[in-house]
């Protein structure tokens, strides 16, 4: 009886330790640069200041956003961002009306300033493309009307 309890408890303890190590080590290894706080931010200013260090940007018409005017299905909104600004370091895509506005950040190590992807939009709102070039933030907005939301529900 004693032996059984001992075995059981040591096994359980072992499992807990294993889980803890796995839980602690895995994110530490892969999430070194993942800005989880920026993705959890509830407004675009907060998301930008966490991800880019500043919520301030100047609007630029050298950034073009290609997205539909009306998206019938908010869970798949195709968005293409390209920029004519030189020395682009990163392109971020935000959807202002989402619960967590930051959609994605692309750090362009050697890529051209062109990103095309598909995003989810909770409701009608602006899609904002923020381009970081030479330490400054430039942005462009485009309103997309969503008839069926893609977040929550």
């Amino acid at each position: 009886m004693n032996r059984r309890t001992l075995l059981k408890s040591s096994l359980a303890a072992g499992a807990v330790t294993l889980a803890a190590t796995a839980g602690l080590l895995a994110p530490g290894r892969v999430l070194a640069a993942y800005p989880s706080a920026a993705f959890a931010a509830k407004d675009s200013a907060g998301a930008l200041s966490t991800a880019m260090g500043s919520p301030e940007y100047s609007l630029s018409d050298e950034i073009s956003i290609k997205a539909p005017d009306i998206a019938e299905n908010g869970s798949v909104v195709p968005v293409t961002v390209s920029s004519a600004i030189s020395g682009v370091e990163s392109i971020s895509i935000l959807s202002e009306a989402n619960a967590n506005p930051l959609v994605a950040v692309f750090a362009l190590s050697a890529a051209e300033p062109y990103i095309s992807t598909r995003i989810k939009m909770g409701k009608t709102g602006n899609v904002v493309a923020v381009v970081k070039a030479a330490g400054k933030l430039y942005a462009s907005k485009k309103e997309v009307k969503v008839t069926i939301g893609g977040c929550g529900g």
């Binding site: 640069a33 993942y34 959807s95 994605a104 950040v105 190590s109 051209e112 095309s116 992807t117 893609g150």
Partner: peptide, 21 residues
Amino acid sequence: TVLQAALGGAVSKNPYLSFRF
């Protein structure tokens, strides 16, 4: 390294990505 991206949950299911280099 050409591109490093951090994605949130607001990228569509079965993500599509296109880029140039």
